[in-house]
Amino acid sequence: MTLLAPDQNTRAPGPARVGIGGPVGSGKTALIEALIPVFMSRGVEIAVVTNDLVTKEDARRLQASGLIDPARVVAVEAGACPHTVIREDPTLNIAAAEDLEARFPGLDLILVESGGDNLASTFSLDLVDWWMFVIDVGQGDDIPRKRGPGIMLCDLLVINKLDIAPHVFVSADAILAEAAAVRGEGRPVIGCRCKGTQTQGVSEIADLIMRDLLFRQVPA
C-alpha cells in the first residue's frame, strides 16, 4: 500500500483489531477456533486476546488447541465486570494488543474475545476497529426482538449453533429473518455453526473481515 503525504511522520497502521462479544457460552471461543485455520489458509497472520473474569481458561484452551502458536494468545483477567474492560476502560486489552503487535510485527489481525456478558455489552472503538456479537439459537428465538445494544450496534451479528435449532424448538430461518429486520438494511447477520464436522457460515464471517478490515480480495 502506498503512504501518502511523505512529509508527514508516517507510521504503519498496525494490524486490524476485531472484537467478539456475546452472552456466556454462545460460542465465541468456538468461533475463534473455527476462524483461525480459515485465516491461516488465506495467509493472514493472526493473534488472539481473550478475556475471562478471574481465570485464563479461554486462553489456555486456545493455547492447547494446536491451532495457533501459544505465544500468540494473551489472556486478560477482566475482574468482576466483563464489559468495563472492553468499553469504559479498555486499557488492559489495549496493552495486551500492543504487546502482541510488538512481539509479532507481521500481524494482520488481532481477535479480542470479550468475557461472556449480557445483551448490553458493546466494544469501545478505541480498542477494536470493528466488532461482532455472537448469540446462539439455544438462548431463545426472541433474543433479536429484545434489541439489546449488543445486537443493534454490532458491525456483524452472528447467530450460532444453527445445528441445534430443531432441538430447542427454534426456526433458524425465522430467527435470522427477524434479526435482519430489527437491525435494518445493510447491517449484516450471519447464521453459523462452528462445531462439528460440517461448519457453516465461518468462511462468510472471514470473508467480511477480509473485505472490510483487511482490504483484501476474497478468494472465489
Binding site: M1, R11, A12, P13, G14, A16, S124, L125, D126, D129, W130, R211, D212, L213, F215
Partner: peptide, 25 residues
Amino acid sequence: RADLSRRRLRATSDAGADVAIALPR
C-alpha cells in the same frame, strides 16, 4: 459521528469511490 472513532473502515464516497482507511492508533 460514531464511525469517527474507527481507525479502520471501508466505505463508499459520494462519487462512488471505494475508500479504505487504516490509520495508526
